[in-house]
Design a binder for these strands. Structure first.
Length: 961
DNA sequence: GTAATGGATCTTTTT
DNA sequence: GATCCATTAC
């Protein structure tokens, strides 16, 4: 391990009292943490008294490995098994299951959590559990919330999902309900700080306010009370107190708050009764146990605590940290600039205002008795790490520029040099990185153009020879695996990956996938339905449609055109086989995939998820069906452990790139409204620090004679508050851009489409560094930087179908193409369709003499992964050739490309060789294996095997166009 | 100059 | 259904 730099050493030596480490990207915080750990041991602190907390299992495991390593080097082998590293969640679970009975004491409820309580990590199942509980709650207590001309039950009827989300947010925020009130300051948090922000109203433009109210009064789906309008009439230039009062508080809202609290509390009670934990509940209960029980506190508390990624902690986690300390030795390591998890109710506040928050929380937690056994420390230290060992000076400079990029045209963001919280870094890594570095910007005229420009840029990095990677003190050429493309959203990732496959660029998509919406997921759903109920039309239709059955065929099979209608024999047989496995879902699902010869990362993930759900709380096949349907509806994503090709470009979201580094990074999709994203909170029920718990809808009733009109309408109060009083904070988008850009070690590139965002323009328009005050005194000069010329991707690639290309190859062949065989083109198509059905395991209802040969060919491919009718694309010259491969069989060592021909002679052979060679090159590019071609003359019962023609022949053919 | 209107386009996810 | 921005209206 290399020596620590000056600042790192300060951190290592700082062993007494609270310490915040501002660890920007690439500053070596993990190695500093490891060294600090060893330093503590050398001061005779026992391993049992040092707790290292991280967020992910990976991070915890890595930290543990590195500490072990360092300890064995330091000759401390005897203590190696006492290292305490943990994730927050594992730590909390251990504490809860250690003293489960305390939870009931804290909440004063009858049911008692048992040691066998289970943590359910499937979000769909948890949501479903909540919904079941909620229906029971409404049935029993719904009437309570219909009073005083209000009906919260009706209001919430359509907002159940929002309610579930809100409760989870409140957990993270440390808002805890009791039966009749809230824990600590929960109530004032729920009500919001409206009373303290009178000055917000004082500064409001009365004209704007008046107009806002009057506009809403005119609309059908709002109901502004008459007294508010009257008040507005009277007061000319001052905001009438009635409006102020009505915005801040009103009875309707208070009944809603009561409802939310009661549901929240009853949900906790029910979860305890069902012995069922979620991640949120586990943390909440861990806090409850620590807060209540001195014994548990003593059992788990430590003298030293180091928390990594502290900017990602929420309020509850920070409280748990404080309750776990014997002494004020909390070392919080993180970087507020990388706080990008606001949507999980985390804000960089914990690290930015560490001192103030610690004081406040300690006071609150010790208010009635001393739970934290020390006084609020006098001194809080903050040490920044300023040496960056990852990136070139250029990359660092550009990354920091992200922090003052405007998120909208009129955004007035402070320049980074004016922001006291920003600590500049110097590049201290391999000096070769500063020689071989670059910053580029590219854009295209459309989304696809942008993605093609990205792929071209990748090829340029890899093949032009203009770029070198610094490694082990030397230089080497660029490989695909050095490059990462970081996008704002998953959709962009997926479409880019698709295009990369078509263009033969080796790429690997990292990230969670909506696996239930894939073909594999839908097949399982269809089969489960069909197995569960032999007359399930949806299931049967999906199975047949997947096999490419025609509409008329499906009608006859499903008995829709008057006939009896039976499923094909092999399908009904398969159903019976599966039915016997209905109690063994793992086996059942595996068999479904086997039937299709499917075995890949997606099938793997689906099998695991469904089996796990089954072994948990689900019992029947209909439960599994519901789970899959839920996941499809809710677009639930699951992690898929894909096989990683070490030499492939990594495509992932900017969020998931946190903590990683790559020699070359392309930040993609810097498009207007996309990155930065302008999308606001879509929840109708939400919590906001200032506004408290609010609802965008309200219950409205009007009595007209004997008739009562009831409606759920938009809340004028909420609309006004958000329109007039709230400005939205998009700083997180800047931090996300910062995270993405600072992953790069040497080369950085930004990409946009036809409508670039403010972020993209920030780096492209004019010389933004001119006259700037970059007198930071650091080792590089920012003003030296050039604004790059933006290379536009102008030439749009033309798509050419393989058949067009063949037709263009001269008169000699043209004749043959039009009449594929003596039997005509229609006949050829019919045979192809039948062949497709056979490859899917279905017997076609029409028999052709050629099918015997086709069965023989498919038989000969046993052992290979067979895919049929695949679209493929191959860039050649300045066009992209596209076509459909009849059969592609992938063996371990090779790929076989087959194409059925019904010709009676060999006249078109040279042309077909060209056609299959194109397919072969596309397949070789996509799969990285050699390919062999087979022209299967199924009418003549012979196959011609050959090696694909070289690319030069294909390019020559393109020139003939 | 400012206000009203219309068009385009819309996310992230450890445990 | 919200929200920014460009265009039009005054």
């Amino acid at each position: 391990m290399s020596d620590a730099n000056e600042q790192q050493q300060k951190i290592i030596d700082h062993t007494e009292g609270p310490l915040v480490v501002d660890a920007g990207p690439g500053t070596g915080k993990t190695s500093t943490l490891v060294k600090r750990y060893i330093a503590l041991l050398e001061r005779d602190v026992k391993p049992n008294d040092i707790l290292m907390v991280t967020f992910t299992n990976n991070a915890a495991a890595e930290l543990r490995d590195r500490i072990r390593d360092a300890m064995s080097k330091a000759g401390r082998l005897d203590e190696i098994n006492s290292i305490r590293t943990s994730t927050f969640d594992a730590l909390c679970l251990r504490m809860v299951l250690g003293s489960p009975d305390i939870v009931s004491r804290f909440f004063n409820i009858d049911p008692i959590l048992s040691r066998k309580a289970r943590l359910v990590d499937n979000e769909s199942l948890n949501r479903e559990h909540f919904m079941l509980f909620y229906s029971d709650f409404i049935r029993e207590h719904g009437d309570r919330y219909r009073r005083d001309g209000n009906d919260v039950t009706a209001l919430m009827g359509g907002l159940r999902t929002d309610l579930y989300k809100l409760i989870n947010k409140m957990m993270a925020r440390g808002m805890i309900p009791f039966r009749y009130d809230w824990f600590m300051d929960g109530e004032s948090l729920a009500k919001g700080r409206m009373n303290n922000i009178g000055n917000v109203f004082a500064n409001l433009d009365m004209k704007k306010m008046r107009k806002g109210v009057l506009d809403l009064a005119d609309k059908d789906d709002y109901a502004v009370p008459a007294e508010i309008l009257n008040a507005l009439e009277k007061e000319e230039d001052r905001i009438p107190p009635e409006i102020y009062e009505s915005l801040a508080n009103d009875d309707k809202r208070f009944l809603m708050l009561e409802f939310v609290r009661d549901v929240y509390f009853a949900y906790i009670e029910r979860s305890v009764r069902d012995n069922r934990l979620t991640f949120g509940l586990t943390a909440l209960f861990a806090f409850a146990v620590l807060y209540t029980d001195e014994r548990t506190r003593k059992l788990h508390s430590v003298e030293h605590m180091m928390v990594d990624e502290f900017q990602d902690t929420n309020e509850l986690q920070m409280e748990i940290c404080l309750l776990l300390l014997k002494k004020p030795n909390l070392c919080a390591v993180g970087d507020w600039k990388q706080g990008i998890y606001g949507f999980r109710y985390v804000s960089p506040d914990n690290i930015l205002n560490f001192e103030e928050k610690t004081r406040r929380l300690m006071r609150a937690l010790n208010r009635d008795r001393q739970r934290i056994p020390f006084e609020v420390p006098e001194k809080f230290s903050k040490i920044p790490l300023q040496e960056n060992y990852r990136s070139s000076a250029l990359v660092i400079e550009k990354s920091f520029r992200a922090l003052d990029a405007k998120t909208a045209k009129d955004d007035d963001v402070a320049r980074i040099e004016d922001d006291p919280n920003i600590v500049m870094l110097r590049s201290s890594g391999d000096p070769l990185r500063n020689e071989h570095t670059g910053f580029d910007m590219i854009y295209g005229e459309s989304l696809e153009d942008q993605q093609r420009a990205i792929l071209d840029k990748i090829k340029d990095y890899v093949f032009s020879g203009d770029h070198k990677i610094a490694e082990g003190g030397g230089l080497r050429d660029v490989r695909y695996g050095d490059i990462a493309v970081l996008c704002r959203n998953g959709k962009f990732c997926r479409s880019l990956k698709e295009l990369a496959d078509k263009e033969g660029v080796h790429a690997f998509l990292h990230g969670d996938v909506e696996i239930m919406s894939t073909r594999e997921g839908k097949l399982v759903l269809a089969w489960l339905r069909y197995v569960n109920n032999a007359s399930d039309i949806k299931g049967k239709t999906a199975i047949l449609a997947d096999m490419g059955a025609s509409l008329s065929y499906m009608d006859s099979v499903l008995g829709r055109n008057g006939s009896e209608g039976t499923m094909p024999r092999n399908l009904s047989d398969q159903r019976l086989t599966l039915l016997r496995k209905r109690r063994r879902p793992n086996d059942l699902i595996t068999s479904i995939f086997e039937f299709y010869g499917l075995s890949n990362d997606i099938t793997q993930a689906i099998t695991t998820i469904l089996s796990r759900a089954y072994s948990g709380s689900l019992i029947t096949i209909s439960d599994l069906i519901r789970l899959i349907e839920d996941d499809i509806n809710n677009e639930t994503k699951y992690n898929v452990d894909a096989l990683v090709n070490p030499d492939a470009v990594i495509i992932q979201t900017a969020h998931s790139s946190k903590g990683l580094e790559f020699p070359i990074v392309i930040v993609a999709g810097l498009d207007n409204r996309s990155f930065p994203s302008y999308k606001g909170d879509s929840e109708y029920l939400y919590f906001d620090e200032e506004l408290g718990v609010r609802c965008k809808k309200e219950y409205f009733s009007r009595r007209d004679g004997d008739v009562l009109y009831e409606r759920i309408i938009n809340s004028w109060r909420d609309k006004l508050i958000r329109d007039v009083c709230k400005k939205q904070d998009r700083s997180e988008e800047r931090r996300l851009l910062f995270v993405a850009m600072s992953r790069a070690k040497q080369y950085l590139c930004l990409a946009a489409g036809n409508d670039p965002s403010t972020f993209f323009k920030h780096f492209g328009e004019g010389d933004i560094f001119e006259g700037g005050g970059y007198e930071s005194g650091l080792a590089y000069d920012m003003r030296r930087s050039q604004t790059p010329k933006i290379a536009q991707y102008s030439k749009r690639r033309k798509n050419v179908s393989v058949h067009e290309l063949m037709e263009a190859q001269g008169a000699a062949f043209a004749e043959g193409i039009d009449e594929l065989s003596g039997k005509g083109a229609d006949y050829g198509t019919a045979v192809h369709d039948a062949a497709y059905l056979i490859s899917c395991g279905i017997e076609p209802n029409q028999e052709y003499p050629e099918l015997e040969e086709i069965r023989r060919i498919l038989d000969s491919l046993r052992g290979a992964e067979i895919r049929t009718e695949i679209r493929c694309a191959l860039p050649a010259g300045d066009v992209t050739l596209r076509g459909i491969i009849d059969v592609m069989a992938e063996f371990d060592d090779r790929i076989e490309i087959h194409d059925y021909k019904t010709d009676e002679n060999d006249l078109n052979l040279p042309l077909y060789k060209l056609q299959l060679s194109i397919y072969a090159h596309a397949a070789m590019g996509a799969r990285g294996k050699r390919a062999v071609c087979f022209i299967d003359y199924v009418s003549q019962k012979k196959s011609i095997e050959f090696n694909p023609l070289p690319m030069t022949d294909i390019e020559a053919a393109v020139l003939n166009l």
